[in-house]
Amino acid sequence: MKLLFSHKIRLKLATKIPPVTESEIVECFSNRDGNFLEDSREDHKSDPPTQWFIAETDYGKKLKIVFVYRENMGIAIRTAYVPNDDELRIYNKYGYEKG
Rank of each mutant, 00 (worst) to 15 (best):
G99W: 09
L63D: 05
V26G: 03
L88S: 01
Y69E: 14
L13W: 10
L4I: 15
D47L: 12
M1C: 09
D86A: 13
F67K: 00
T50H: 01
Y69S: 13
V68C: 03
E42K: 05
E87K: 09
A55D: 00
K12M: 13
L13H: 10
S46G: 14
G95V: 03
P18G: 13
D58E: 12
L4N: 01
I75V: 13
F5N: 05
C28P: 13
P19E: 08
Y94W: 13
N35R: 15
V26S: 08
N31K: 12
F36D: 06
K62G: 02
R32W: 11
K8I: 14
V68S: 02
W52H: 11
H7K: 11
S23E: 10
L88V: 07
I17Y: 08
K2L: 09
R10L: 12
V20C: 08
I25H: 02
G60A: 06
K12Y: 14
L37P: 01
P49V: 07
H44A: 11
H7Y: 07
P19M: 04
D43E: 15
G34F: 13
Y94Q: 10
R32H: 11
S46Y: 12
E38C: 04
K93C: 09
T79I: 05
E87C: 07
P49F: 06
R10Y: 00
I9E: 02
L3N: 08
Y81T: 06
N31S: 11
N31I: 05
D33T: 14
F29I: 04
M1H: 08
E42F: 06
I75N: 01
E97L: 14
F53A: 04
D85I: 06
F29T: 00
N92C: 06
F29M: 06
E97T: 02
S23W: 01
K8A: 15
R78T: 08
T21Q: 08
I17D: 14
K16G: 06
D85F: 08
K2V: 03
N92S: 12
I9A: 03
I75S: 00
D47W: 09
A55I: 02
